[in-house]
Design a protein around this nucleic acid. Structure first.
Lengths: 239, 239
DNA sequence: CGAACCCTTGAGTCGGTTCAAAGCAGGTGG
DNA sequence: CCACCTGCTTTGAACCGACTCAAGGGTTCG
């Protein structure tokens, strides 16, 4: 009963959201999930350009993205900004703040987005009595660590075109996992933000896109990307 | 009673080990900790060059370093290796494997080391009944995520000498936090491994060391490093 | 329609890599 | 104990990929 109360307070359920792995008690049927979907809860709208949280703010909740698109970035003391990630529907943000209880990066919406705010103390509390939730929380944090290590490999070892190929393939995979087209999607971020994420300058990103297009690997029209030859892109990674 | 049993099975306690934050139940006195220290437990010796775990192996435990030095690295399909981290006394390794239950990187001892193997299912079990442990586990994973983001900034935005300065300062801080000299320490890794970690070639690392020495910032004698002017190094980071 | 912003493309520059050679410490075996 | 080998490091010179600087074009929005 207590569990159920907390669940109601959280009001975060979504059949296409990584939270279904976070909150889902064993045996919860898909139909029940979808009914819960209908409930509006502690959701929040974040408009394009608005901050979800900023570096230095007190950490109180983690955030699940119901829809939309975010970037997270860290600001160096000298003013340099580095984009640490792009986050879409179903992703969880704010996990890096647990340790210090202070947000260590900025999170900005790149398009009008809807997020679920999940008070961390309540989540913690709930996870103490719900082993599956407990496990999944670990799993999600662990996944982020492993993913970051891949990015480190990319930043440390790959050349510009490889990075961009890896970036496009990753986006494609994530869109596809969410039921969207793997072959055609809209970039939500600017060339500069892509560059910042990949450790490149915006001109280099632009040139690489053009090159890929010349080679028939993709087609680019401003923010619209079509992967014409995903295998060709993958081949770039095995230099 | 049950808690105590599990604690005994874990047999990982060490007054100078991040595990003291992991396992420590509230109210455990330092003396009790130190008594537990004396117990030999599921510890393991890993000799220089030996693997603690390898990519692809089944994940069963996380590892706390009692003493010694490790590197973790990921292997790209084309054979390129990237060092994702250096780990010393008190650090926890293997957290990135929780999500897939398969190790996602190699862990190699760079010197003869002693580690505590902590069966993850038992740890999980224990953390369900010990809120502090639960919290600390989250904290440690979160810290790793936040730290990885800093490295991403380094790899993505900094120039060679900045990276090396940041690297040395980080090592210094960590040694100092463990009671060793902040100003003078022995590198356990080769120039090539440093380079791999920082996204540089070994020659570049070597040249940067020489340059720092010329400028009176450090003194280098093969693997022995002395920080002569830590503030000077820090100044390099605020380009 | 103009302003602001983003993207593309070119030319020149530079930091870091590559290739090559030589020095140095530690370990091994004769 | 010395000679030799091996692995690590240093240093130099040439090269190249990505950056910088600069100009021009496209799109969106007030």
């Amino acid at each position: 009963m207590k569990e159920h109360n907390i669940l109601n307070q959280l009001k975060v359920v979504c059949s296409l959201c990584s939270l279904r792995e976070l909150c889902l008690p064993i045996g919860f049927a898909l139909e029940e999930l979808q009914q819960l979907d209908a409930l509006t809860g502690s959701k929040r709208l974040v408009r394009r350009g608005e901050y979800l949280y900023r570096t230095g703010e007190k950490f109180a909740a983690i955030y699940a993205i119901r829809g939309g698109f975010f970037k997270t970035s860290v600001l160096h003391e000298d003013g340099r900004e580095h984009v640490t990630g792009f986050h879409m529907m179903g992703d969880i943000m704010g996990l890096d703040a647990i340790s210090t209880e202070t947000h260590a990066c900025d999170a900005v919406a790149l398009e009008c987005s809807e997020i679920c705010e999940i008070p961390f103390d309540r989540l913690s509390e709930l996870s103490m009595v719900m082993p599956v939730l407990h496990q999944n929380l670990h799993r999600i944090m662990s996944r982020e660590i492993a993913f970051d290590h891949e990015i480190m490999l990319m930043l440390g070892k790959m050349r510009a075109e490889e990075r961009l190929a890896a970036f496009l393939l990753n986006l494609s995979k994530r869109f596809s996992a969410r039921g969207y087209s793997a072959a055609s999607f809209q970039l939500r971020m600017t060339r500069e933000e892509i560059g910042s994420y990949l450790g490149l300058k915006l001109e280099t990103v632009s040139r690489a896109f053009s090159r890929f297009q010349e080679e028939g690997l993709i087609s680019v029209q401003r923010k619209l990307i079509e992967l014409k030859d995903a295998d060709g892109l993958k081949r770039l990674l095995r230099v």
